[in-house]
Amino acid sequence: MTALDAPSAAPTFRARAGSLAMRALRVELRIYASIARAIARRPAVAPGAAGFGYHAPILTILIVFIVLSAVEIPILDLIFRDIVPVRIALLVLGIWGLTWMIGLLCAMLMRPHTVGPDGIRVREGLEIDVPLSWDDIASVELARRVDEEKAPRIADDGGVPTLAVRIANETSILIVLERPTAVTLPGLAPKGGRHVVERVRLWADDPKALMREVARHI
């Protein structure tokens, strides 16, 4: 058994609680950082790299949720106008929820996949960020695929351990790695933490443009 394959000890309850708290804090801070990036129009793209969006399949859904969250605030405020403690609590929760939804949309827009001199960064929303150097990558190809609902991110795909970063259950790009490579996902094992994969699948709104950029570097 190699160091890459060695299993990690099961985390204790205290470790899980601490990890969950830190993860929630990171997500909260990234919400506001993403909104600030959107206002400043400064996407998280390294110098010399190009960004590629992945939000198109769910953009309409996100906008609908944002509108509904905004409409809900004055309606609940009107319903509970005579119950001041409840009114204040719902107002705070409503504003926080609306800010969170706006931040999630901003994160998807401001944290795109990137292709640049250092390699490919595979991203999704607030948390997923997997850097792959060109030394790690054997090939990149167009390969559109629709998976089942709630399929795991890490799975054996024809006997090959694969990370699938899907949008609306779909991926459109397949990255084959040179060797088994460790990637880190948010959270603790078994779903999060460190995993060893040999392929990465991802969704890009314009996969052909991404492939053209890959051809400039690989």
Score class of each variant (00 low, 15 high):
Val176Leu: 03
Val71Phe: 11
Ile167Gln: 12
Leu93Asn: 11
Pro207Leu: 07
Leu202Met: 15
Arg16Ala: 09
Thr2Tyr: 03
Lys150Thr: 11
Asp206Tyr: 06
Ala21Met: 14
Gly48Asn: 08
Arg216Trp: 00
Arg23Asp: 12
Ala15His: 13
Leu29Ala: 06
Met101Ile: 09
Ser133Ile: 09
Arg166Phe: 01
Leu93Ile: 11
Ala89Leu: 12
Gly116Thr: 08
Met110Trp: 01
Gly125Pro: 02
Cys106Ile: 02
Val92Ile: 14
Gly159Phe: 08
Leu93Ala: 13
Ser172Met: 03
Ile83Arg: 06
Val214Gln: 07
Gly103Ala: 07
Val84Asp: 12
Leu25Cys: 03
Ser139Lys: 10
Ala21Asn: 09
Val165Thr: 03
Arg81Leu: 12
Thr114Cys: 01
Ile75Pro: 10
Ile128Arg: 01
Leu29Arg: 14
Ala38Ser: 12
Leu105Glu: 01
Ser8Asn: 08
Ile102Tyr: 03
Leu104Asp: 05
Arg42Val: 15
Arg87Asp: 08
Ala21Trp: 12
Ala21Cys: 10
Ile175Tyr: 06
Trp96Arg: 10
Lys208Gly: 09
Ile61Gln: 14
Gly187Cys: 10
Arg201Met: 08
Leu20Glu: 15
Pro7His: 03
Leu142Met: 06
Arg123Val: 02
Ile173Leu: 02
Ile63Cys: 06
Ala50Pro: 01
Ala46Lys: 09
Ile63Pro: 01
Ile137Tyr: 07
Ala151Asn: 08
Ala204Tyr: 01
Phe65Pro: 00
Leu98Ile: 04
Met211Cys: 11
Gly192Leu: 05
Arg41Ser: 14
Arg41Pro: 06
Pro152Glu: 02
Lys191Gly: 04
Gly158Pro: 03
Pro85Lys: 05
Pro190Trp: 05
Ala17Arg: 15
Arg87Thr: 04
Leu4Asp: 05
Ala49Trp: 03
Gly187Met: 11
Pro7Arg: 02
Leu93Cys: 13
Arg145Pro: 07
Ala33Asn: 05
Thr171Asn: 06
Ala189Tyr: 00
Thr114Ala: 01
Ala204Asn: 04
Pro161Glu: 03
Ala33Val: 05
Glu72Tyr: 00
Pro180Leu: 06
Leu142Glu: 07
Arg201Val: 04
Ala138Ser: 12
Arg23Gln: 13
Leu104Trp: 00
Arg144Phe: 14
Ile167Trp: 00
